[in-house]
Design a protein around this nucleic acid. Structure first.
Lengths: 247, 247
DNA sequence: CTTACTTTATATGATAAACATATAAAGTAG
DNA sequence: CTACTTTATATGTTTATCATATAAAGTAAG
């Protein structure tokens, strides 16, 4: 999926540096020749890299004027690479807040649509996801770390099942981009804490999920929507707690 | 914003053809040499084009194996270029349905968040947008075409104002991408009808907007959410009617 | 001293040719 | 038939050269 080889290295190097603000808006990057020498690659690699960054809205090249950094407003913020680069930059906390806000705005509507308009097959998937999720709680002879992994996997599937019921390719991709970024952040967070601590508040979280599922199972779209909003709000509080500890 | 010059031509030519299904998943494009000859451009232009398409997830190149079309599931469906190409392909109706579904899923949550958490400045913008919107209805000595334009402009600002109140850069970009695609489709639709017909059901639509605004102004987030859902549902019905006429 | 025009330097835009490298496919030895 | 080697061929990368747009310097007319 990511660009491989020398080109891939150069693209993510330059991409990260731009996102990190090494050159500000309207400032020009070094010339192609300078970048060739600095990065020890041929001109074509430099050019191909810049064309890719141009396609992502980060820069614009003009003859004589050089390659200038574009204002953030035209950056393609939905691009997975861009999100990844932002995650590795000082920008990370702003991004986290935005991603959580997207979930909070989006997922109640997802719950509503899944409950009101989901196909039978989609509803069956949600049901199965819920069964799997509660089974994790009653697992025995399993290490805490394993249980934690199962918890995360089944939690993800629960949300994905609702999303699939909406039947929107675009929303599914948006969610998967967000999900990848958030889970990478969680890894960063846990590494920073130094160990894989057991998940706190598992029971409380599960009650909130139960509320979502109950409303869904009863065909109560408005109720599912509200319950999902509570669930995400709680997740946001947890995330903020986690990140204020580590940064 | 779009890639300019010869490269821009080649990128959108190849992009459109891939999206249109000229080569199916796992099939290989012609070799770089063949594309050079076919398109009458140098190899570097072909290569840079393919690298851009690779960055969008459309293709993957491997030495010896050539450049193969990737499965739709890894295409970066949120990319504005990709959306534009899909709009010009047979895929258009599927895309329209998906875009409307995204709005239906997203915008009620936007209305909720704007009402519950919007800043004073953001709320003032929504108020101003509403004032502007009702002013259009009472315009005099204005051609129907002008009024239609004003209607569209103010309608857009009404939705944008709610969105801005959420404070999510990512959601704003998502919306602007969707909005660009939808409005382009509306143009296509109107051209197909042969004339710029006056908007039908303006009064009904305005009542639905009024409901959204009233709930918002009263600080009733749940009410604003529901009203927004009705509004979008009505817009979807209109859109479907429009498109079933023309296709 | 301005203003309008011309020239020049220099950045990216594009082409071309050559070599590097990975790998699918054909050929070969056991 | 299997495992290994060779070969052909696709993209990967470098390098060199010319084209073109344009910012900036230079120049002439007002």
């Amino acid at each position: 999926m990511p660009v491989r080889g020398i080109l891939g290295e150069v693209v993510s190097d330059l991409g990260r540096r731009i996102v990190a603000g090494e050159w500000k808006t309207d400032e020009t990057l070094p010339t192609e020749t300078e970048l060739m020498n600095e990065l020890k690659v041929g001109r074509s690699v430099v050019r191909e890299s810049i064309r890719i960054l141009n396609a992502k809205g980060l820069v614009r090249s003009r003859q004589m004027a050089g390659t200038t950094v574009m204002p953030r407003s035209v950056w393609r913020l939905l691009d997975p690479d861009l999100i990844q680069w932002r995650m590795q930059a000082a920008d990370r906390k702003v991004l986290l807040k935005d991603l959580l806000q997207v979930r909070l705005t989006l997922e109640p509507g997802v719950a509503w649509a899944a409950t009101a308009n989901g196909s039978e097959a989609a509803k069956a998937r949600i049901h199965a996801a819920w069964q799997g999720k509660i089974a994790v709680l009653h697992e025995e002879s399993v290490t805490p770390e394993e249980q934690r992994q199962h918890f995360i996997t089944h939690d993800l599937e629960f949300h994905r099942a609702f999303l699939a019921a909406v039947g929107s390719e675009i929303l599914e991709q948006l969610f998967s981009v967000i999900e990848a970024a958030l889970s990478l952040m969680i890894d960063v967070q846990m590494q920073a804490r130094g160990s894989t601590t057991a998940l706190v508040g598992m029971e409380e979280t599960n009650q909130l999920h139960q509320d979502v599922y109950d409303a869904f199972a009863a065909g109560d779209a408005d109720g599912a929507e509200k319950a999902m909003r509570h669930l995400i709000q709680s997740a946001i509080i947890d995330a903020n707690r986690g990140f204020s500890l580590t940064e």
